[in-house]
Every structure is written in structure tokens, then in C-alpha cells.
Design a protein around this nucleic acid. Sequence first.
RNA 1: GUGGUUGUAGCUCAGCUGGUUAGAGCGCUGGAUUGUGGUUCCAGAGGUCGCCGGUUCGAACCCGGUCUUCCACCCCA
Length: 457
Amino acid sequence: MAQKPSIPKGTRDFSPSEVAKRNFIIQSIKEQFEKFGFQPIETPSFENSETLMGKYGEEGDRLIFKILNSGDFLRKVDEQAYKGKDSLKITSSISEKALRYDLTVPFARYVVQHRNELEFPFKRYQIQPVWRADRPQKGRFREFFQCDADVVGSDSLWQEVEFVQLYDAVFTSLGLEGVTIKMNNRKVLSGFAEVIGESDKLIDFTVALDKLDKIGEEGVEKEMGEKGISSEAIQKIRKVFGLKGTFSEKIEVLKGILATSEIGTKGIEELEFINSAINELGLSTANLDLDVTLARGLNYYTGAIFEVSAPKGVAMGSIGGGGRYDDLTGIFGMSGVSGVGISFGLDRIYLVLEELNLFPETVARNIKALFINFGNKESLYCLKAIKELRSAGVAAELYPEEAKMKKQMNHANKREIPFVILAGAEEIENKKFTLKNMKSGEQQAVSLENLISILEK
RNA sequence: GUGGUUGUAGCUCAGCUGGUUAGAGCGCUGGAUUGUGGUUCCAGAGGUCGCCGGUUCGAACCCGGUCUUCCACCCCA
């Protein structure tokens, strides 16, 4: 064989059984999305560069896959930029399209572009691949699926409440019990920065705070210091680090800390509203927790922030996230439309279900019976039966070659086909079929009617 | 983008300090067994040792580059 073919870094092929399992997850998610009133849309794999660039911060721009222009693109490159090896400028002149980086920004574009056709509040879901030029790691790929549900055009906090319920419904239906839905509010984070007098360093502050569970209190304080946050400010915020207890207990502590901040107090009220509603409504298997260190990377969140982590004991990053962004469509010139949404990380959920052995055995579609091939005359007899079986809803097939019995039986074994049917000269004469159960080894001669009724079960 | 790590048969992996013709288990193909699979026994096929270059009388092994894998940052699903 010549040089073995390969696929690019961070991409994957999916085998039949993997596709079956992925479809199982996607089906469960879709079912819940639709139960909650979301409708599917799809957007193109690639967008105009200007739609994506600059929407995810500097880091995000670096991770966007750019598509090279067709034709003699170098001719149009700015001479100055080319000579100065200015990659940034050259990129914008040789690449006008880029692969989508997430589903939220294309959705914002969609809403603005179709604003006059949409009925608000508009609830959509979208399950499509996205691409990031990231370094792959466990559960991190360069091509992966996102499953998003968003509502635009409603400020109501009941939306947040419904999203918590939606998370619970999806993970419950997947059999993944004990996930933790962590919640925070951007306004609380702003409140912290305000209270300690470092409002202008909000981003640096939240990025450092977000790392608490990873680098510990000392690490966070060190990083905040490095970013120019004063030690008095850090002193003031320390008690937030060790915040413990139930959702409501944490709320009470935070009320005290943020009493002087209007925006912080607003954030607390929102969290309290959602929590008490959820307490009243109840969750099936998920837990709701308040995590004030939750910041998440996306800068466009303005209210609630969600992140879902796998049940304890499973080493996996977040398996879902989301939040409210009051002005997402503002970046496309349509302001005053509030949106809130959540996302499911399909690939990570897959890994978690696999690790916990939670895929039902029945996810893989398989045929019920294989007919052994004894020759052309017998095959025709079999195919007549197969036709009847199929129209009765039973998946069955004929082994295509008149191969040795051993080979045909083996094939059925490998494919884990539960029944094998033999029909040779003798069966044809008696208008019967020999049905063999591959598990028990038992076999019996049955009529076509019996065959159908047995396999229909 | 930074630092590290990995690559040998279809799969999981051995392979000594650089020394003839690179091995095992599983899997695969054929036979024992021409209408009965899984167990057993016998035989066989299958490798440019990721790729390119260098050092050496000699390289799977040492050196450089490159691709890939996984990991820690960065960031994030």
C-alpha cells in the first residue's frame, strides 16, 4: 500500500456504532428542545469574515479558520502590507470567508438579517459543526458539534428558569444523573469590581477569578496583583473566594458584600428569582449551584451565566454553557434585543456517557435476520420472504454470495444478527423456513406467517 | 501561539548499549468440517519501524526537521 491516507489534526472519522451513539444524544436533545418550543434553523458552514472577526476577542480571531480566496488572490494584496510581512493585513485581503466558530454569532446575524420575517420572542435551536484552529486535547477538537438553544426578544427571567429546566430535562433523558448546573451573573461580577474600586479592570478581574478552582486562592491573588489590581482591593474580595453553603446561604452573604453596588444587587436579585423558582418547580436529576467564580470567556454575556459540569468523579471540562447577552444583535446594528441561550457539548457528553457506560445497548440499528444463500433458486425464494418481512417492518437481508455456510454464519455472528434463516431445497418443497436463533443455537421450521410474527416482536 | 510527550503488523504492545532475515497476543485468510457460527487443532498472509534528511562500516534505536497523538499553559464545548 502506498502512503496511508490521513485526516487533519483534531478531526475524526465516525464508525457506524459511534454515529449511532451520537445520534442517540442528538435525538434526545432535539426531542427536549422541541418540547420546550424551540424550532430548528441551519446556517452556512462559512460566513463572511467580517461577520465573525472581532466577535470573540483577539484570541478568538486567531482560532478562526480562514478560507483562502479563489483566483489570483496575491495580485490584490496591499503592496505595503506584503513587503512588511503584516500577516493581519494580508489575511484580510486574501481571505474574505471563514468557517463558523460557534453558532451564536451566526444566529445573531440570522436574526438581524431576517428580523422582519421573525415572530418575537424567537426561539430557535441549531445543531451543527463548528471549527476552531485550536490545539487538540481530550474532549477538544478542531471540528466539533454544538447544540444550541436560544431565545431572542424577551427580557423575562422566566427564560432563564426554563433553560435550567431544559438542561435538567436533557441530561435526565440521557440518563446522565447528578450533573451540576452552575450559575452566576455578570452583574454580580461587575458589582464585585465596583465594590473594590476596580471597575475598569473587570475583564482581568473575572478571568483571574474564574481560575479559582484550578490555581487556588493564592494563584488568583497573584494573578490579580500582576494585572494591576491593588492589594486593598484583593483584600476586600477575599471572602468571596471561600464562599460556601447552599445557594440561598451564598446569596445572603453576597447581599452584604454587594450592598453598596446597585448593579451587584440587581444581579443578586436575578439569581434569587431564578433559584426560588427552581426550588418551587423542582429538578429531576440535576443540581443547581451558585458559583460566583464562573466567568466564561465570552465577553458578550450581560446577565445570567451558565455552565454545566459532569457528575462528580468524571474528569471532563464543562459539558454545556450559556447565558444572557442583552445586546448580541447590537454588533450587527440591531440594538435593544435581549437574548439568552445555552449550548450542549455533544462530543464531551459522548465521552462522559461512554465513560459511565450509559449508552443503551439498543442504540445501534441492526437487521433482525440474515438469510443464508444457497444459490439463485433458493435466493429468489428467500427474497420473496424478505420482501414480506420488510413490509411488515422487519429489517432483514440475504447474504449476497453463495459462500460456504461457515463463512455466512460467521458473518451473522460478527454483525451480531440475532437470527439466521436457512431455506434450501427441502424448505422450498415444504414451503417452510428454518429459523435459527444465533444466541441459543435453537432452530425450528416455520411457515412464512410464523416467521413474520416471530421476528416482528 | 508557548512548553513537553507519542508514533513498530488491522488492533494492543515487546524489541537489550546501534550489530545478520524486526517479534508476541488478538484479529484476518485457508484447512480439519461440501446444510450449521461461537470452542479446539493445523497452516498461511500481513511491516519502507510516521515521513524527510544527517551521523555511522552498520540505524526501529543516535541527531535535526516535519507531520501526528496525548498533556500542561493560553483559551474554550
